Computed example of a mutant assay.
Amino acid sequence: MTRPILLLGLLGLAALPARAQKQYVQEQQLWLGVFNQTRFSPRWGTWTDLHLRLHEHFVNRLFQGVARVGLTYYLTDEVRLTAGYAYVHHFPEGARTIGQPEHRPWQQVQWFTRFPKARLMQWVRLEERFRQQVVNNEDLGSDFNFNYRTRYNAALFLPITKDAFEPGGLQFLLNDELMVNFGEEIRYNTFDQNRLFAGLVYQVSKHGQLQGGYMHLFQQLPAGNVYRNQHSLRLFYFHNFDLRPSAAPVPTPQ
């Protein structure tokens, strides 16, 4: 069960280039997020997630906002294909007074594995990132920088209380996500970042859960020799709606 997460860490370390005079940017952030997956037929559903990220001693300034939507096709109850669009807004940093918009189409395969005393969620996501160019501290250009990014995410849920995955249950969550850039405009940071999270999950209801804990983010910036070493507090709420009639059969995939 833990092999995907251990493999992620090894891949992240292997992808780091040996460059001289490395510089490290230290940050503290607070990440807030709301996720929803709604299934409205045996085969179709939607994906929505919204994020607000703060930085400078966790809460002093806005850092980033993300709004993501998608349409999901259910191959089975445990395997899902999703394609969608995300809008990301990077708030000004340092002397810059203008924010940077990013348009991000994305595609994903997500799958779940159930064990007697654990749950494992994994996904592989491909993103096409269009980031509007910043001309100077006060102006945006008309052109966009572009690159692809692939992400592998593995989340292992281990029950702590006897209620386990039922309402009122408490779980320990270990989550790791590795991101890799590629495309013509990528020169020095093929490795983008690794996010390692450990925390607790409270099962609010059969369809909702609250996650909170600590996340360490290590990112290589485009310059190649500058790295972001980020310590974050993360609070996410997940909710699933199932709008199918209770008697509706699930058809066999064609």
Rank of each mutant, 00 (worst) to 15 (best):
residue 212 G to A: 15
residue 132 Q to Y: 10
residue 24 Y to R: 02
residue 98 I to F: 05
residue 214 Y to K: 02
residue 44 W to C: 11
residue 70 G to M: 04
residue 196 L to Y: 04
residue 216 H to L: 10
residue 239 H to R: 13
residue 18 A to H: 06
residue 120 L to P: 00
residue 67 A to S: 09
residue 194 N to Q: 09
residue 231 H to Y: 11
residue 194 N to R: 10
residue 143 D to G: 07
residue 33 G to W: 02
residue 207 H to Q: 14
residue 71 L to F: 14
residue 23 Q to G: 10
residue 41 S to V: 14
residue 124 V to S: 07
residue 130 F to H: 13
residue 91 F to A: 15
residue 223 A to C: 07
residue 218 F to S: 02
residue 162 K to H: 09
residue 8 L to Q: 11
residue 206 K to Y: 12
residue 21 Q to I: 00
residue 229 N to E: 09
residue 176 D to C: 10
residue 32 L to F: 10
residue 203 Q to F: 01
residue 105 P to A: 07
residue 231 H to V: 12
residue 72 T to L: 01
residue 38 T to L: 11
residue 15 A to Y: 06
residue 96 R to N: 14
residue 138 E to A: 12
residue 115 F to H: 14
residue 74 Y to P: 03
residue 174 L to Q: 04
residue 19 R to G: 04
residue 71 L to V: 15
residue 40 F to D: 00
residue 198 A to G: 15
residue 31 W to T: 05
residue 26 Q to I: 10
residue 107 Q to H: 01
residue 142 S to M: 03
residue 240 N to A: 14
residue 159 P to G: 05
residue 23 Q to I: 00
residue 165 F to Q: 04
residue 180 V to K: 00
residue 156 L to T: 00
residue 148 Y to A: 10
residue 153 N to L: 14
residue 229 N to T: 10
residue 29 Q to R: 15
residue 163 D to A: 14
residue 120 L to D: 05
residue 108 Q to L: 07
residue 93 E to V: 13
residue 247 A to E: 08
residue 174 L to Y: 08
residue 46 T to P: 00
residue 118 A to Q: 08
residue 53 R to F: 00
residue 191 F to D: 05
residue 110 Q to R: 15
residue 197 F to A: 05
residue 60 N to L: 10
residue 220 Q to W: 06
residue 228 R to G: 13
residue 92 P to S: 10
residue 148 Y to R: 09
residue 177 E to C: 08
residue 24 Y to W: 00
